[in-house]
C-alpha cells in the first residue's frame, strides 16, 4: 500500500512537471507577440523590444521555463503582464468564489445522482425506470450555459426567488448573502453534472444487482432494495469515487462558463478575461492551477479507491 502511494505521488509529480512544460510550450511557441499587444498598435519597434527584454522574453525559452518553475516551487506563479498583480494572490482571492461554487455543485450533483441512479437501476424494467434513464440522457446533453439561462428565466425572472446574477461586493463578510448568490449557479452545474453522474451510478448499481451476493441476500428474504443498499453499496461507492476525479474536471469547466453567465468574480471569469487580454503569464498560471487540481484530485481518488476496495488492497499487498 505504501509503495503504491509513493509510486502514485511520484507519478503525480511527473504529471505536474509534464503539464507545466506542455502549458508553457503551448503558450510560448505559438505565434502571438505579447510584447506587441502590451505596447499597442502604434508603438515603435524599439518600444516593443524594450518591453520584450523587460519581460525576459529575449532569454532562451528553457531559461524562461526554469525561472517560472522555480518560482512555482516557492508559491510564486508569476505576475500579470498587464497589471503586474501577483498571479498567486489573485488565484487565492478568486478561489473564494470558485471553490465554494464547485463544492456546492458537487454536493447537488451527488444528492441528485446517488438516490435517483439507484432507483432507476431498481426500476429498470418499469416505465419509471426507462423514463428516468431517458431524462438523464437528455439532461446530460444540455449545454450548461443554456441550463443556466433556463433556470434564471424560471427561478430569478419568473418566480423571483434568486438574483439573476452577481455576487455581493463584500464577498463572504455576509455569508448568508454570498451563499444565496451561489445557489442558482451551483444548481445549474449540479443538475447537468448530476445527470452525467447518474448514468455511471445506474450502471454500477445494475452491475451490483447482478452479483451473486446481492441475489443471495435477496433470496434469504431481503427486498431487492435492501439487498442492494446493504450489500451492493460498496461497489456503487467505488464507482462514485472513481468517476469523481473526472466529474471535478467537468465541474471546473462548468464553473468557467457559469461564472461568466452569472457574473461571479471567480477563477473561471478571471481566466476568460485574461485570455481576452492575451495575458499569457497569467493564463499560464491559471491553467496550470486548474489542471494541477484535476491531477491532484485524480491521485487522491486513486488512493482512496485503493483504500476502500479490499480486492485492490489485497492485490497490492
Amino acid at each position: 500500500m505504501i509503495r503504491f502511494v509513493i509510486t502514485r505521488l511520484a507519478l503525480l509529480l511527473l504529471g505536474l512537471l509534464v503539464a507545466s512544460a506542455l502549458i508553457f510550450a503551448t503558450l510560448r511557441i505559438l505565434p502571438g507577440d505579447v510584447a506587441q499587444v502590451i505596447a499597442g498598435t502604434d508603438s515603435t519597434p524599439e518600444q516593443v523590444e524594450a518591453i520584450r527584454s523587460s519581460m525576459g522574453f529575449d532569454q532562451p525559452l528553457l531559461t524562461q521555463y526554469i525561472d517560472w518553475i522555480s518560482g512555482i516551487v516557492t508559491g510564486d506563479l508569476g505576475h500579470s503582464m498587464l497589471t503586474g498583480a501577483s498571479v498567486t494572490s489573485q488565484l487565492v482571492e478568486k478561489a473564494q468564489v470558485t471553490f465554494p461554487l464547485t463544492v456546492m455543485s458537487l454536493a447537488i450533483a451527488l444528492i441528485i445522482a446517488v438516490p435517483l441512479g439507484i432507483l432507476s437501476a431498481l426500476k429498470r424494467r418499469t416505465f419509471t425506470g426507462s423514463a428516468m434513464s431517458m431524462v438523464s440522457q437528455a439532461i446530460a446533453a444540455v449545454p450548461v450555459v443554456w441550463a443556466g439561462m433556463l433556470l434564471v428565466v424560471v427561478f430569478a425572472v419568473g418566480l423571483g426567488w434568486f438574483p439573476p446574477q452577481g455576487f455581493p461586493r463584500d464577498g463572504w463578510d455576509e455569508p448568508a448573502r454570498a451563499l444565496y448568490a451561489l445557489i442558482l449557479p451551483a444548481l445549474t452545474i449540479g443538475v447537468v453534472e448530476g445527470a452525467v453522474l447518474l448514468r455511471f451510478i445506474r450502471s454500477a448499481a445494475l452491475e451490483a444487482l447482478g452479483q451473486d451476493y446481492v441475489r443471495t441476500a435477496a433470496a434469504k428474504g431481503l427486498t431487492r432494495t435492501r439487498a442492494l443498499i446493504t450489500h451492493g453499496m460498496p461497489n456503487v461507492a467505488l464507482t462514485v469515487v472513481s468517476v469523481l476525479a473526472l466529474q471535478i474536471a467537468g465541474l471546473l469547466v462548468g464553473a468557467v462558463i457559469i461564472e461568466q453567465l452569472f457574473t461571479l468574480p471567480g477563477i473561471g471569469r478571471m481566466l476568460v478575461t485574461d485570455v481576452g487580454n492575451r495575458d499569457l503569464e497569467k493564463v499560464q498560471g491559471d491553467v496550470l492551477v486548474l489542471t494541477g487540481l484535476v491531477l491532484v484530485l485524480g491521485t487522491v481518488v486513486d488512493i482512496v479507491a485503493r483504500l476502500i476496495d479490499p480486492r485492490q488492497r489485497e492485490a497490492a499487498a
Binding site: 502571438g32 493564463v283 489542471t291 484535476v294
Partner: peptide, 13 residues
C-alpha cells in the same frame, strides 16, 4: 487531465 475547454482557451489566448 487537461479539460477540453482549457486547451481551447490556451490556444485562443
Amino acid at each position: 487531465a487537461f479539460p477540453t475547454l482549457l486547451i481551447a482557451m490556451m490556444l485562443a489566448s
